[in-house]
Nucleic acid binder design. Structure first.
Length: 326
DNA sequence: AAGTCGGGGCT
DNA sequence: AGCCCAGACTT
């Protein structure tokens, strides 16, 4: 099938089937740019349905780039509470400050400047150029990667490498409606060409899809393995309060509130109380109930009755929940 | 090129 | 109980 015909079919499908999303609202140009920046940071490795309420709260509190560049960290991080990958929000503010100071408050409209900004990599730079500036770029996210692999039936190790996929994405052609086209391709991956049970009956381009011809929709991928890790978690309780510390010790949940913990390496006879999956690790946790709190740096007593006054990562909240029912 | 970094939705 | 998600950054 000719590139232009594929493009047209996908755009037609998108026009009829696209979801109504808060960052797709018809707004002024400057708002559109800001919405794109914020939504793309939030959407990194995070599903659309999860992002929607966070995006709405964020835009409501921080309606523009200027405000973002001067917002207090405390309030900013609170808006990200529970979303995960907290370095994203710190990078987002850094990027906002740079745009204000170096780019006269305007988001750069070229690849080199964009990718130099903290938190913006190849994907996000392409996404901003396409979605916000309607330039003929196609971002390679997990959705488009999957559509590409299926459409071309890419299975070999060499074929599914990132660099090769970035080359191959040009088969999707270009459109004058670049903003819609980038979103259409992602939408196609999210709604139709799903990881499992793709709904080819609703697909606009099944006839030229190699996986459809072969009736094989399995995806070749590079497997990442999880690591088993072991921690002693220390609980100090005073009245209705728990002792928490600002985490400067572990690389995960950096600078966020956690219970005091120590990691054990290859322990013997480790009977864990709790088990959490976080990022690429499986955390096995043994709880120690202790009486006399020694002096921890940057520690404070967390009052569990006033949860909303704190910014706690989901991990810490889950531990509190566990302690409350045991 | 491989590890690290959250958390939740979906099957 | 795994897999995956509009990836970026470090090593």
């Amino acid at each position: 099938m000719k590139d232009q015909i594929i493009t047209k079919k996908i755009l037609n499908w998108y026009d009829l089937n696209k979801r109504s999303l808060p960052w797709r609202k018809n707004v002024s140009q400057s708002k559109k740019h800001y919405y794109t920046l914020v939504s793309e940071f939030m959407l990194q490795q995070t599903q659309v349905v999860t992002v929607i309420p966070y995006f709405n709260r964020f835009i409501n509190k921080i309606p523009n780039l200027k405000k973002l560049s001067t917002i207090q960290d405390r309030e900013l991080i609170k808006l990200w509470e529970g979303l995960g990958y907290y370095s994203r929000v710190r990078n987002l503010k850094k990027t906002a400050k740079i745009i204000i100071s170096k780019y006269d408050g305007k988001i750069p409209n070229n690849y080199e400047d964009l990718i130099s900004l903290p938190g913006i990599g190849n994907y996000t730079a392409n996404a901003i150029l396409a979605i916000a500036f309607n330039k003929s770029y196609i971002p390679l996210d997990g959705n488009i990667e999957r559509v590409l692999k299926r459409y071309l039936y890419l299975k070999k190790d060499k074929e599914i490498k990132k660099d090769n996929l970035i080359q191959k994405k040009s088969i999707f052609g270009i459109s004058s409606r670049s903003s819609d086209y980038a979103q259409a391709l992602m939408e196609l991956g999210a709604m139709i060409c799903k990881p499992k049970n793709p709904e080819c009956s609703g697909c606009p381009i099944p006839k030229s899809c190699k996986s459809y011809k072969k009736k094989d929709f399995n995806l070749a991928k590079i497997t990442k393995k999880n690591k088993e890790k072991y921690f002693i978690l220390k609980v100090y309780k005073k009245n209705q309060k728990y002792l928490l510390v600002k985490n400067t010790k572990f690389n995960f949940l950096k600078n966020l509130a956690i219970f005091p913990m120590e990691e054990l390496y290859k322990p013997k006879n480790f009977n864990e109380n709790l088990n959490f999956k976080m990022s690429n690790m499986n955390m096995n946790i043994k709880i120690q109930y202790l009486k006399n709190a020694k002096r921890f740096p940057s520690s404070y007593w967390f009052d569990k009755r006033k949860l909303d006054n704190y910014m706690l990562p989901t991990f810490t909240k889950k531990v509190v929940k566990y302690l409350e029912k045991n």
